[in-house]
């Protein structure tokens, strides 16, 4: 047991964790969105997006256009929703913009999902970001971990095993 060696390893671990955190927050700042990379959780945009697909967001645009795929959050519901803008109304005088959205795979528009009997979304306050890029399926691992109770133990076991291995 070498205390100096152990401390260096602990410091390295801290370094890795903090740099990952800094990367995430930096990306957040650059895109102006509190979650710049999201994993699709529902099938309401199929066949465009399936469960587990990873989306890259951008939120520095002043207005959304019709056809944009946006992520929005409804007051009181914690799950963000990925749907397409089907209508927009904006004023040239100020920054206000009202949006109506719909999932490609849903029959009707999203009015039943909106909070407080609203029939429109507000671009400034409700939109988390606009989808710019797409990678298929690799986010499925996060869904698997959060929905399978044994997956967490498997991950822990793997981490422990790898730390034992690197001891050599």
């Amino acid at each position: 047991m070498n205390l100096r060696f152990e401390l260096t390893r602990f410091l390295n671990l801290c370094f890795v964790l903090s740099s990952a955190f800094m990367f995430w927050k930096g990306l957040s700042l650059a895109t102006n969105s509190h979650s710049p990379i999201v994993v699709v959780l529902s099938g309401s945009m199929e066949p465009a997006f399936q469960r587990g697909d990873v989306l890259f967001l951008w939120n520095r645009n002043q207005r959304s256009r019709v056809g944009d795929v946006v992520i929005y959050e409804v007051e009181g519901k914690s799950i963000p929703i990925v749907h397409r803008v089907m209508r927009e109304h904006h004023s040239e005088k100020n920054n206000k913009q009202l949006l109506l959205t719909k999932g490609d795979n849903n029959a009707g528009n999203d009015i039943p999902l909106y909070a407080n009997k609203n029939i429109y979304l507000n671009k400034q306050s409700d939109i988390v970001g606009t989808v710019k890029g797409y990678i298929p399926q690799i986010g499925y691992i996060t869904i698997w971990i959060s929905e399978n109770k044994y997956a967490k133990f498997a991950m822990m076991g793997l981490l422990g095993l790898s730390s034992l291995m690197s001891n050599e």
Partner: peptide, 15 residues
């Protein structure tokens, strides 16, 4: 009534 309000609406779409 408010000509500075611009709108765009979808009538039809297809995948």
């Amino acid at each position: 009534l408010r000509p500075q309000t611009k709108s765009e609406v979808t009538y039809w779409d297809k995948i």
